[in-house]
Amino acid sequence: MHISWNDNIPIYIQLRDHMIALILSGAVAEGEALPSVRTVAADFRLNPITVSKAFQLLVETGLVEKRRGRGMFVAEGAHRQLLAAERAKFLTEEWPAIVSRIRQLGLDPAELLESVGQPKGDTPS
């Protein structure tokens, strides 16, 4: 597993976002244990405090739960919670910019919808 760190964003935030992406993609399932802080710190060559801070953010949002003596586990409903939050974020933050760009370029939304699912290089007829 490799992350390209962005110098403009704190590493603990980037690590939290990486863990969120793993949960959203299903790579880490609900009820599944997260790797230990020490393991993640060693894998990414990070300070364990940085990893702990990222994990604590996941706990505070209810995506991860601590089980005393057993570790941290992805909470039940985490995927559904993340999906709802990401959809809302897309619709309020990303979609308006996309719509603006579509209009700016004079693209036909119907043609764009037709092209969804077309293999690269193929053009709708």
Score class of each variant (00 low, 15 high):
72 M>Y: 12
48 P>F: 08
71 G>H: 05
50 T>V: 14
74 V>R: 05
65 E>W: 00
69 G>E: 08
50 T>I: 13
71 G>S: 01
58 L>F: 02
59 V>A: 04
88 A>C: 10
64 V>L: 07
57 L>W: 07
73 F>R: 06
83 L>F: 13
86 E>C: 14
72 M>E: 00
48 P>V: 10
75 A>M: 09
83 L>M: 12
57 L>Q: 13
68 R>H: 12
66 K>H: 11
81 Q>F: 12
80 R>S: 15
78 A>T: 06
59 V>F: 14
62 G>R: 03
91 L>E: 15
91 L>H: 03
49 I>H: 11
65 E>M: 00
55 F>Q: 08
48 P>E: 06
65 E>D: 03
55 F>N: 09
62 G>Q: 03
91 L>A: 06
84 A>D: 09
81 Q>W: 10
70 R>H: 10
61 T>R: 13
50 T>C: 05
80 R>L: 06
67 R>W: 08
77 G>N: 14
83 L>V: 14
65 E>N: 03
70 R>L: 12
69 G>W: 05
86 E>M: 09
58 L>G: 00
56 Q>G: 01
68 R>W: 13
58 L>Q: 00
87 R>F: 02
74 V>D: 07
84 A>K: 04
79 H>D: 06
68 R>V: 14
65 E>T: 00
91 L>W: 00
58 L>T: 01
87 R>Y: 01
59 V>P: 05
68 R>Y: 15
